[in-house]
């Protein structure tokens, strides 16, 4: 692709810490190569700020290849920006025109408090996984890998759901700040596999309870999450989670504590 250079005006959310009120600050980004990634454009702005002795814009990022899920900002109102199925780090400046104004904000949700500038705390996602987003298979206890055949279509659907990178764009995009796309992706992945069956219904119950405790909203079928998801995780997963949740609620029985042996 041929390289061009463009000039941009950035409105960037700056917030010193969780207690600070925060607000937008304007920066000019001059002579930006269209071959740059969005984060590289911000790197250059930050280099300029450091040289002036100002604090650079704090932002989360790590792998810069669209898989770790650590990056993510709202660009002109859209989590991860204008390009479909693309994380912030994979967005390149060829998606913008000379003279554009770009508004850059953190992901916003009650459950994702701002730590600094564009960085938010997504620890709630980890706590939801800790509540049940796993198969209990302690190291060393596994049978041979081919002992449990998995239908190819199930494995493929499980993989589609497992592609979630836990970035939180679904929450930021949702008018209710619901985490149901994230939660349902993990529930679906494990419910679609034979290995996930023993804990299937306790898992959905426990994860949903934690999700509610974290003050995420509920789903009212806007579909904004799916549109914002950089990995195209499907709304179908939410339907699957709801079915399992209802079944789990209808059939719930407290576990009977088995009696000890000799």
């Amino acid at each position: 692709m041929s390289e061009k250079h463009i000039n941009l005006t950035l409105y960037v959310w700056r917030q010193k810490n969780a207690q600070d009120e925060g607000g937008f600050v304007t920066y000019e980004a001059k002579h930006v190569s269209t071959e740059m990634s969005f984060l590289e454009m911000l790197d250059v702005v930050n280099e300029g700020l450091i040289r002036k002795g100002e604090e650079p814009i704090a932002m989360d990022h790590d792998c810069r290849e669209g898989i770790c899920g650590q990056c993510g900002v709202v660009i002109n109102g859209r989590p991860h920006g204008p390009r479909e199925r693309t994380t912030t780090c994979q967005l390149h400046m060829r998606s913008f025109e000379d003279g554009d104004t770009i508004t850059i904000e953190p992901f916003r949700a009650t459950a994702f408090p701002v730590i600094k500038d564009l960085i938010v705390d997504r620890g709630a996602f980890d706590r939801i996984i800790a509540a049940g987003g796993f198969i209990s298979a302690p190291t060393g206890s596994a049978p041979d890998g081919n002992a449990i055949p998995v239908k190819k279509t199930c494995a493929d659907l499980a993989m589609d759901a497992a592609a979630c990178i836990g970035c939180g764009a679904c929450v930021a995009a949702c008018p209710n700040a619901s985490a149901m796309l994230f939660v349902s992706a993990k529930i679906s992945q494990l419910a679609l596999l034979p290995q996930g069956q023993p804990e299937r219904y306790s898992r959905v119950k426990d994860m949903v309870a934690q999700m509610d405790d974290e003050e995420f909203g509920t789903c009212t079928n806007h579909g904004e999450c799916e549109a914002a998801c950089p990995k195209a995780v499907s709304l179908e997963n939410i339907a699957r989670m709801n079915r399992d949740f209802i079944w789990s609620s209808l059939t719930y029985r407290p576990e009977s504590g088995g009696s000890g042996g000799a």
């Binding site: 796993f134 198969i135 298979a137 190291t139 060393g140 206890s141 596994a142 049978p143 041979d144 890998g145 081919n146 449990i148 055949p149 998995v150 239908k151 190819k152 494995a155 493929d156 499980a158 993989m159 497992a162 992945q189 494990l190 596999l193 290995q195 996930g196």
Partner: peptide, 23 residues
């Protein structure tokens, strides 16, 4: 190496499968 594959399958890692359901 073989134990690792078994362990990961048991955890629900969605490895690619053939049509017969095997890895």
């Amino acid at each position: 190496s073989n134990n690792i594959i078994d362990q990961c399958v048991a955890q629900g890692v969605p490895f690619a499968r053939e049509y017969g359901g095997l890895l």
